[in-house]
Amino acid sequence: MRGRGIAFHLQLAFTLLLASFLIVPVLASMLAGVTANYLSGVAGGLTLRWLGEVWSGYAGQVVSSLGLGLACLACTLVLGVPAAYVLARRQGHVARMIEELLVMPVAVPGLATALALIVTYGTWGDFRTSWSFILVGHVLFTLPFMVRSVLAVMAAIDLKTLEEGAASLGATFGQRFLGVVLPNARPGIVAGALMVLTLSVGEFNMTWLLHTPLTKTLPVGLADAYASLRLEVASAYTLLFFVMIVPLLVAMQLLSKPLGSGRRQDR
């Protein structure tokens, strides 16, 4: 490495500044969630009071959000993994068109999708007021991430030849799919699953329109809290959200690293 000049230090300072722009408010809000009074700062003492208040008031929404996320994950696994497999095995225009269509819910703003769902199915009595109404929205929005993630891994492993190899050894389609396709697509499935969970737990754009007073998720509760409660409570609620989401994000980061470096060694 060359000696580091002024350019290096300028860029380092810039990058540090950008990183603090992202991290400082996160830390500040975490801190605010446990200070007795944010205006007087840490000096005013730390307290778990706000967290307790949030937990007693909103634990139901936390549990609902987690349940919804898991249900959404199950749906995207069942729908998305087979779809990704077909898209990986098919080369033609039709397959590419279907792929393009399947990722559309990500390109179209959630607000529009939610509105479309409401005007179409909003009058279906129980469906509108049930959790499955929100679940449908979440599945639509997260399915592309599962498909993309699995498809990327499948495209990188020459699935066709692996499957032909298994078939030549006598494996039936079921044996090939369970014994060769799924295990080798695992990194993509795991990455997709983390992404789906993260997005579902944090989804707001659609959920705000799709929810009813009886079906509230964590981000809906957050929006309520931001609008009406004092900063410390809002912060405590945000802290609770971070506790849920940050492990998922960290897991995603850790997961993506060995994958990247492993590919490099192969070259």
Binding site: L18, L22, I23, V26, G202, F204, N205, L222, L249
Partner: peptide, 12 residues
């Protein structure tokens, strides 16, 4: 640090 807020929802 730069990539942590990835997938934070808009409300947050």
């Amino acid at each position: 640090m730069l990539t942590l807020p990835l997938a934070f929802p808009g409300v947050v």
